[in-house]
């Protein structure tokens, strides 16, 4: 359990990753300390979600090392990897609730699968988690009967069921109304402080994120472009971050998909 650097929870060293012909990450170095909330931002398809996949061991890098809680993730065999994942919670983009199970059974799932707790204790734990996200009254509903925001809260309750040391959030605010965004943001922060978790948030939602996190890592072109505190993001004059923060259509990220010259294409032949 005691890793050499107890303050380091996640450490990526010169990580390279590519899908068959497309290079996604081109040498990423990133260290995340225990208890930190870190946001990873960047354009679509920029490798943010890939980074979460590498940390959780669902993807293997072509080169470089990924250390989580002192363990070299790509080198773990299946049972050790599953051992590590018991300490990692993940909130998926759209919740990924089990559609054939009720809200209660969704949250009971990790307890039933990973522990030998008796059913009455599981019941108390599930109700405790549901109370924490304010949805104890919805325990008998099916995921299809929930609104997007409620489903995300249930998924959050399920992800933290086993009190993980690391929480990974894949676009936790996508597709939610502003009220739900606020609720989820506050829950993430509260859970993080209450449970002493290390959190990695992949997101586009700058405003909510800046209120929440200790550090922002900006990915661009497969590399870490900037690594700074949230206050700095608001004031920096880095053109890429400005484009991102202010939602400018054109800038370092071009509006136009690369193609031949417009004039010559429209006139030529």
């Amino acid at each position: 359990m005691t890793s050499p650097h107890t303050s380091e929870m996640i450490a990526l060293k010169d990580v390279r990753f590519s899908y068959a012909d497309r290079s996604i990450l081109k040498g990423v170095n990133l260290t995340i300390k225990k208890g930190e909330i870190v946001a990873i931002m960047g354009g679509s398809g920029g490798g943010k979600t890939t980074l979460l996949g590498l940390i959780s061991g669902r993807l293997k890098p072509q080169s470089g090392s990924v250390i989580v809680d002192g363990l070299d993730v790509p080198k773990l065999n299946k049972s050790n990897l599953y051992g590590l994942r018991r300490k990692i919670g993940m909130l998926f983009q759209f919740g990924a609730l089990f559609t054939d199970l009720s809200v209660f059974d969704n949250i009971a799932f990790p307890y039933r699968e990973q522990t030998n707790l008796p059913e009455d204790i599981i019941r108390s734990l599930v109700l405790l988690k549901l109370e924490a996200v304010g949805l104890r009254g919805a325990k008998d509903l099916k995921p299809a009967e929930l609104s997007g925001g409620m489903a995300r809260r249930v998924a959050l309750a399920r992800a933290v069921a086993l009190d993980p040391a690391v929480m990974l959030y894949d676009e936790p605010f996508t597709g939610l109304d502003p009220i739900s965004v606020g609720i989820i943001g506050r829950l993430i922060k509260r859970l993080n402080r209450a449970l002493g978790m290390t959190s990695v948030i992949v997101t586009h939602d700058l405003n909510e994120t800046l209120r929440l996190v200790d550090r922002v890592v900006v990915l661009s072109d497969g590399k870490i472009h900037r690594d700074m505190a949230p206050e700095q993001i608001r004031t920096t004059d880095d053109p890429f971050i400005r484009q991102f923060a202010d939602g400018l259509p054109d800038g370092p990220v071009p509006f136009h998909y690369p193609g031949p010259d417009y004039l010559s294409e429209i006139l030529g032949r």
Partner: peptide
């Protein structure tokens, strides 16, 4: 297929439950 598309299988895998056996 739907469980895969909605990342339910991935979620299961992340909870250290093998979707193949579950």
């Amino acid at each position: 297929g739907l469980m895969r598309a909605t990342e339910q299988l991935a979620a299961m895998d992340m909870m250290a439950v093998d979707p193949l056996s579950r």
